[in-house]
Design a protein around this nucleic acid. Sequence first.
DNA 1: GGCTTGATGACAGTTGCTGACATCGAGGGT
DNA 2: ACCCTCGATGTCAGCAACTGTCATCAAGCC
Lengths: 174, 174
Amino acid sequence: MELYGERGYEQTTVTEIAKRAGLTERTFFRHYADKREVLFAGSALLRERLVSGLEGAPPSAPPIEAVAGALQAAAAVFDERREQARQRQRVITANAELQERELVKLASLATAMREALRLRGVSEPAAGLAAEAGIAVFKVAFERWIDSVGERGMGAFILEGLAGLESLMAGGRP
Amino acid sequence: MELYGERGYEQTTVTEIAKRAGLTERTFFRHYADKREVLFAGSALLRERLVSGLEGAPPSAPPIEAVAGALQAAAAVFDERREQARQRQRVITANAELQERELVKLASLATAMREALRLRGVSEPAAGLAAEAGIAVFKVAFERWIDSVGERGMGAFILEGLAGLESLMAGGRP
DNA sequence: GGCTTGATGACAGTTGCTGACATCGAGGGT
DNA sequence: ACCCTCGATGTCAGCAACTGTCATCAAGCC
């Protein structure tokens, strides 16, 4: 992160990263599958929160409410590390390769939610739709949260996003 | 595509592709930014269809209906080349790097739709939400279409997806 | 003290991708 | 017909990401 911040992602070679960490290039690749993965190792935590959020929802709750709860649980992760999240996002938005990887991580979150919904008894294609729509709301809310100035928590943006999408799907014209 | 089909994506080197095409490796990279791009050059057509679908919708139509029309216009592209689409998708699902690039292309479609919606007068965050939700429906519909056996057009899956998402957002329990 | 085992180093090799310069063929102007 | 420009291609050298293989080494275990 230091090096990525100092000279940018592309201008940083793996050899430099390894040297700064007091290791060999080869050893770096034993810990991270590739150069990008350094920035995304933490996404496992997000997945856990989403999944346990879905598992923790009352069995009687409709899918969208379960998803809403899971998104709230995930949003809390960001509120705890607001500045770190912004710094990280600055590096990512500055580089196309990193944005690719971020999309992959989001897709894997969608898959995890989809499977957790299936376990709740939600059938296809509803499970896939609910998961993808949830991630869509998450993306928009995250972007707005990052660009926001105040101390507003990400959960508020999630709520707004859910309400907005609900209105849109009902034929609303905001 | 021949080589990717014969021996798989990773086992095919750019040198081989260039030789098969009667060109040099260097010339290959003058036409395609990278090795993956060969499979995604056609996505520009998809974007055009989506955008002109949005532009062509009656100004009075609510966002979700404009998106629905655009998705239908895009779906037609696939019905015309069903077998080709399947073959391509087989190559892509067999390789992680290619799935990454596919996600990038989908994200760029979402961005294009978002901007087209803004031009229709839809404001944020509704434009972003509608675009992302539309792509979510598209993803699920495409997956179901690829896995389907009959001659059913992709447009039918799009319609089902839209209806399903509408029901979900209204608190439905399918 | 010897043994296994997991992490690391050393090193060579492949391949995607880029920069710099030379070449060549098609049109365009005179 | 002659030259001239220009776009596409070839040639060559090189970097950096990533991988396979084997040696080394330290920690714990018998």
